[in-house]
């Protein structure tokens, strides 16, 4: 394997996103001997601050500074990357809302293979990279062979690769701003509208009783509120509950909802997708109740109960209220 490896670094306020060091770790898993080039694009002085942080971990940095890059519009950044990446390159991108916007289209423009939401690499067979990913919200795993002979765009799941905190070295910054031509796009960024705050602030709660699609019907939501009441906690939920408008958005835990740090977290009828677990921080004591013994949530939980929540939760509530 003698492909050049690149990572795309997203950043905010002069600091690279946590994903940058995870992408470096992922590149190391593809080829431990490869030198990794990080790509940092943006506008203003912040870009230099980001570049300095990255070179201090030993990577080479391609820097692209342009007014048009003040906001990371994936459509424009795709053009930048098509201009500066050599043919046959492998580029790693974080599989977040920016990476989902960028990766697939970039692969087409580079005429390279695309694999998304990658959780591990298992070496190569000739020009085929052996990749591990999941399907069906993590219920099953797959091996994927990806032909990298003409390069590849690979989106990496956030949190899947452990960053090496001890990386030091002295990379260099190469200014590629001149190579980035035609930075117009048919999609123009207007503004970011912040999510509205709700009645309850689940980010401040010690005890969260979280409900997922397993509750099946809006009428059943009552049993969750009853349990929360006797436990003295607050109700939170997974995304489908908000999509169905059974609870307000401010109660959603996950990457597109709230990041919570409770002491105790009950996951009731929640399968345990990475987008949901991405919002659960601070290593709480997690109890999962799910009728599927193989649900991925049991991998993230400390204690599990295999049961139908519609039967189990009312009984649990009754027992706790007896004690109270």
């Amino acid at each position: 394997m003698s492909k050049e490896l690149y990572i795309y670094v997203t950043h905010k306020d002069g600091a690279p996103d946590d994903s940058a060091s995870e992408l470096i770790a992922a590149a190391g898993k593809i080829d431990p001997d490869a030198s990794v080039t990080a790509i940092v694009a943006g506008s203003g002085d912040n870009v230099d601050t980001v570049c300095q942080t990255i070179v201090a971990s030993g990577s080479t940095v391609f820097k692209i500074v342009n007014e048009a890059l003040a906001y990371p519009n994936a459509e424009i950044i795709r053009k930048v990357l098509v201009n500066i990446l050599p043919t046959d390159a492998i580029i790693l991108i974080s599989h977040d809302t920016f990476g989902m916007d960028l990766g697939p289209g970039l692969s087409i423009k580079l005429d390279a293979a695309f694999v998304s939401d990658v959780i591990d690499f298992e070496g190569a067979e000739g020009d085929n990279l052996k990749i591990i990913r999941q399907e069906f919200s993590g219920q099953v795993y797959t091996h994927v062979l990806c032909d990298i002979s003409a390069g590849a765009v690979i989106n990496i799941r956030p949190g899947a690769f452990k960053a090496d905190e001890n990386l030091t070295g002295k990379g260099k910054v190469i200014d590629k701003s001149g190579d980035a031509s035609d930075l117009t796009s048919g999609r123009r960024f207007l503004e970011v509208v912040e999510a509205e705050a709700g009645e309850v602030d689940i980010t401040a709660e010690d005890v969260l009783i979280s409900v997922g699609r397993g509750i099946e019907d809006e009428d059943n939501m009552e049993i969750i509120f009853d349990l929360a009441k006797v436990m003295g906690g607050e109700v939170s939920c997974s995304r489908p509950i908000v999509d169905a408008k059974w609870l307000e958005k401010s109660r959603q835990v996950g990457t597109s909802g709230q990041t919570v740090k409770p002491k105790v977290y009950l996951a009731l009828g929640i399968s345990g997708s990475f987008q949901h677990l991405g919002g659960l921080k601070g290593a709480p004591f997690v109890v999962a109740v799910n009728k599927n013994a193989n649900a991925p949530i049991f991998q993230a939980a400390d204690v599990g109960v295999v049961a139908d929540i519609l039967d189990f939760i009312p009984e649990l509530t009754e027992k706790i209220s007896e004690i109270n």
Binding site: G232, G233, V264, V287, F298, Q299, A301, V303, G304
Partner: peptide, 29 residues
Amino acid sequence: GEGAEILEGSTDEIIAELVERLKAKGGIK
């Protein structure tokens, strides 16, 4: 790997055990 410790037994036994665990972790106020 290990994953969660799955509580076994009758529903009553499971609930009794779960209540103890929750109390110990501050899950029941």
